[in-house]
Design a binder for these strands. Structure first.
Lengths: 198, 198
DNA sequence: TCAGAACCGGAATTCAGCTTCAGGTTAGAG
DNA sequence: CTCTAACCTGAAGCTGAATTCCGGTTCTGA
């Protein structure tokens, strides 16, 4: 007889008994509220605030998620899934460079809109986010393929590595204080900053 | 009759009465201890830990610095001064590109060695760090001159701006998880990542 | 050498947030 | 309709870390 079961598992193993209707509804509210607030102010939001926005008591948050980390992980997990979907879509493009740009800018636009996402990507690895590691692997595989295509088509320098994609995105995210800074950063990266006299 | 005077003013207006010998010595110990620890783990160190490393009680820290922020500000301020000195030195180089590279890599190597410095540069503007703003102005002026020289000599693209220097450094600092990542990042930036088929 | 201002130590206090828990409520099976 | 497991609430408890406070200690000028 578990008292405070954690249904936040991202792996979709259905719980023995489905949630009661009100519980399912509330869980959704929590996820929505947390999603918005985390996206807006990252880690800094308080549990109480999330509960209020969801129209629930704090206790209810804890019925659905073991702790703040678990809630954050659930939110982050969603974003990662979306990102993998984005990568998959980008890979559809027949033009290799279009695929690369779609992936890069799509990724960064998502990051711009979501402080929690940036937080997860820029900060140190959270050991509690194991579920996310698997998602990352999927994403990386697709990225790898897109990068390779761009190289083979001569759009990226020969020695470009998928890891470099991470470098670029981290760099850009660090410049997201202002809406246009990160675009400038990416532009400089893509075009290079050396002059004619190099 | 002030009780707990804040001598952390970075502006060197000497206090009415010079500090007692032991006090001056202790102040130095605090600065040293805090400098090392902040450099190592940034914001995350605790006052108690700093006190211990300095061989003093916490109360003593608070005799010299109003609060943790003030102590951090004092440390950061020192780094900024060093950075301005570095810029001045770089500007001495007769070769414009050498000057630019010296500045860029010197700046980044310092950042690599100091988490507190990165923290101050990457995080949002702290309102309590007013003293540092002045130092920043000096630094910016020199950077501006170095950038201009590099452009005029044809080593940097015409539309390069001093602000871009900030973009680059922020980007690189975000990639300082691993010692060589940021160098790769800078290299990509300088050389560009587009292939022959651009 | 001595008084007392300046200084120091570190236990006690404060505080902000997360988390728990002892009841009250409600969905929904029978 | 009834009963009860599942659910919800939010005040109270807990925790970790900053900050205070005051009795004791140490400089230093006379």
């Amino acid at each position: 007889m578990p008292r405070n079961v954690n249904y936040s598992e991202l792996t979709m193993t259905a719980p023995e008994r489905p949630l009661r209707a009100d519980a399912r509804r509330n869980r959704e509210s929590v996820l929505d509220a947390a999603g918005e607030l985390f996206a807006q102010r990252g880690d800094a939001v308080q549990m109480e605030e999330i509960a209020e926005r969801a129209g629930l008591g704090v206790g209810t948050l804890y019925r659905h998620f073991a702790d703040k980390q678990a809630l954050l992980a659930a939110i982050i997990g969603r974003r990662f899934e979306a990102m993998t979907a984005l990568a998959r879509a980008a890979d559809e493009a027949s033009d290799p460079w279009a695929a690369f740009e779609t992936l890069l800018y799509g990724y960064l636009e998502s990051a711009q809109a979501d402080a929690a996402f940036r937080f997860a990507l820029l900060g140190p690895e959270e050991p509690s986010w194991n579920d996310i590691a698997a998602e990352k692997t999927d994403f990386s595989a697709i990225t790898e393929r897109i990068v390779r295509r761009a190289i083979d088509a001569g759009h990226l320098r020969e020695d470009f590595r998928a890891d470099d994609f991470v470098l670029i995105t981290r760099g850009a995210m660090a410049n997201m204080t202002d809406a246009r800074n990160w675009r400038r950063h990416v532009t400089l990266l893509l075009e290079g900053i050396r002059g004619p006299e190099r």
